[in-house]
């Protein structure tokens, strides 16, 4: 589904990311872990063609993401606040993103009702996104990434700032999407969450993949040992 080939991103003399070869198969559910500065966000940004690789390339369905816009049709993503439009109300934002995928306001209404446990829209009527809390902004970004029924889903630390109920809702939602065949790539600092939902773990350190393993019962303990100082 996604291939990273000789991918390298260098800032000055600092190597932010260096990956020889990585293949993400269809229906993989990957958890990306690593300390701050390990290159998680850099890797996600490269896959989304937000930054230019110093060397190498990313292919999505065999097409280079920096040469073809095809991937935008089937990729949903949310990395940070820069993905939200601050002066729109949440509904307007959903309608705008929806319209890009040919959805009308009735579709959006259904969509929001479907996910009402996660995002209670009544609580936000009359507010613009810029006035919402970090957790609520996060929820909006995550939901918007689901909107297009993507085949690939890329989320950067989706569990951060979420309340406990929303975290557990999101976990079951992601599992359900994975069962439907969606390829998912998330990063997280919460080892418990990723080992619980993901079926493959990538461990990054100083821009290199130091561990690539399928999740098993021991994975959590191994990871905890790795990160223990």
């Amino acid at each position: 589904m996604i291939e990273l080939i000789n991918l390298q991103k260098v800032y000055g003399t600092q190597v932010a990311l260096s990956i020889g070869k990585l293949e993400i198969a269809q229906n993989d559910f990957i958890g990306l872990v690593g300390n701050n500065g390990a290159g998680k966000t850099t890797m996600l940004s490269l896959i989304l063609d937000l930054i230019k690789p110093t060397k190498g390339l990313v292919k999505s369905k065999s097409l280079n993401v920096s040469e073809s816009d095809e991937w935008k049709n089937y990729t949903g993503s949310f990395l940070n606040e820069g993905f939200l439009i601050p002066f729109l109300s949440p509904i307007e934002f959903f309608e705008f993103i929806g319209s890009l995928h040919g959805k009308n306001s009735a579709d959006i209404k259904d969509f929001l009702e479907e996910n009402e446990q996660f995002f209670k829209q009544d609580a936000f009527s009359g507010k613009y996104i810029r006035e919402l809390s970090a957790g609520n902004k996060n929820k909006i970004g995550i939901l918007a990434s689901f909107l297009s029924k993507p085949e690939i889903l890329i989320l950067d630390e989706p569990f951060s700032n979420l309340d406990p109920s929303s975290q557990s809702w999101l976990k079951s939602k992601l599992k359900a999407l994975s069962n439907e065949g969606v390829t998912i790539l998330i990063s997280s600092h919460d080892l418990k969450h990723v080992t619980e939902v993901c079926n493959r773990i990538l461990l990054l350190e100083d821009g290199h993949i130091v561990k690539d393993t399928n999740t098993s019962n021991e994975t959590l303990i191994e990871l905890e040992q790795y990160f223990d100082i």
Partner: peptide
């Protein structure tokens, strides 16, 4: 500038 990334990643024809 504050939401440029959303334009880059969404399905918007340039």
């Amino acid at each position: 500038s504050s939401f440029f990334d959303s334009y880059l990643t969404n399905k918007i024809s340039h």
